[in-house]
């Protein structure tokens, strides 16, 4: 029962190989096997959204997917957001600017959710943005500044596209 299985996947453009127990979920695999501790683990039953990562371009709960299921997948985590030279992603820049985080525990999950939202609906209004963020819990901020940052980043991203 404790046989480990091989998992090979790409994370933030780099190829990784590791072994884990079948029961290991993706967020634990990223943290413990690959040392990518930017992805946080909160409730482990799919409610808080802290472990959100992109798998093949889609935001998913890292705790509700087995690492074995990500074999062959393209994963993106918060470590992959900033450019190689350290330039922040527009979302990260907007979060800094709007003071959209306090303790920061929920932030990686929120950022990765918003990557998909900004890709799909960069013209989302405030109500749509709040609905899109409903799967990420933050216990510090009251969400005001998170929503503000998300809308600012959306504007920045669509501005770049329009140009």
């Amino acid at each position: 029962m404790d046989d480990t299985i091989a998992v090979a996947l790409r994370v933030n453009g780099r190829t990784f190989q590791g072994r884990c127990e079948p029961r290991t979920h993706l967020a634990d695999f990223l943290r413990h096997e690959l040392g990518l501790t930017g992805t946080h683990v909160g409730c482990e039953h799919g409610v808080c959204g802290a472990c959100t990562v992109l798998v093949d371009g889609r935001a998913v709960r890292g705790c509700l997917m087995l690492a074995a299921q990500a074999d062959g997948a393209e994963v993106r985590t918060v470590e992959g957001l900033a450019a190689a030279d350290g330039t922040l992603h527009p979302l990260q820049a907007a979060f800094v600017e709007a003071h959209a985080l306090q303790c920061g525990f929920c932030t990686p999950g929120i950022l990765m959710t918003l990557v998909e939202v900004l890709n799909d609906t960069p013209d989302a209004d405030e109500a749509e943005m709040r609905e899109a963020l409903s799967g990420n819990l933050c216990r510090c901020t009251g969400y005001q500044n998170i929503v503000k940052a998300a809308l600012t980043a959306a504007k920045a991203v669509s501005g770049v596209r329009g140009a």
Binding site: R23, H25, E44, L64
Partner: peptide, 26 residues
């Protein structure tokens, strides 16, 4: 049977269910 996992995975994580075998349909 494991399909999208959005109910079974929480149930596994919380040990509401402890199957010997998980068959992934993905």
């Amino acid at each position: 049977l494991l399909s999208g996992g959005q109910s079974l995975m929480p149930m596994l994580n919380l040990r509401y269910v402890m199957p010997d075998d998980v068959i992934d349909l993905n």
